[in-house]
């Protein structure tokens, strides 16, 4: 059985890193509705936020959702409650990265792609996905 509101520390850390108030979210799902990458996520943005609100730490740290956020800010622009969702996603990534859990292993990247891709794609990805 999941224990809700068990990990208050997690909620506090997320709020600190993101500078957002989790209680602002009323779970309308508009972030999920407009997210260009929601279909690739195992857990969509609004549910990631729900995990945060309920302090479901294991679920939150297990989900791959935040790694698909491209910080395009469509959700932020349309959120009726003024929640900066990409900051919340960054907070989850930050927690992982500070625990030395990155998404990509640079030597593994396809050499041909490395030569072809514009530097700013690589630098952006490294800054978001590596520690």
């Amino acid at each position: 059985m999941n224990k809700i509101l068990a990990d208050k520390d997690l909620t506090r850390r997320i709020e600190e890193i993101s500078d957002q108030k989790l209680s602002d979210c009323y779970q309308c799902g508009r972030c999920t509705a407009g997210c260009p990458f929601a279909e690739f996520m195992d857990v969509p943005p609004n549910q990631v936020i729900r995990f945060m609100q309920l302090g479901l730490k294991e679920d939150l740290l297990k989900t791959q959702g935040p790694w698909f956020c491209a910080a395009c800010l469509v959700c932020q622009a349309r959120c009726p409650r003024g929640v900066d969702i990409p900051r919340l996603m960054e907070a989850v990534r930050t927690i992982h990265l500070r625990a030395k859990e990155g998404l990509i292993d640079v030597p593994e990247i396809d050499k041909e792609f490395l030569l072809d891709a514009p530097p700013l794609a690589l630098i952006s990805a490294f800054s978001k996905f590596t520690y």
Partner: peptide, 12 residues
Amino acid sequence: VLGADTLSGKQV
């Protein structure tokens, strides 16, 4: 129409 069904956790 780009929406979501929060009950199933799906983008629709």
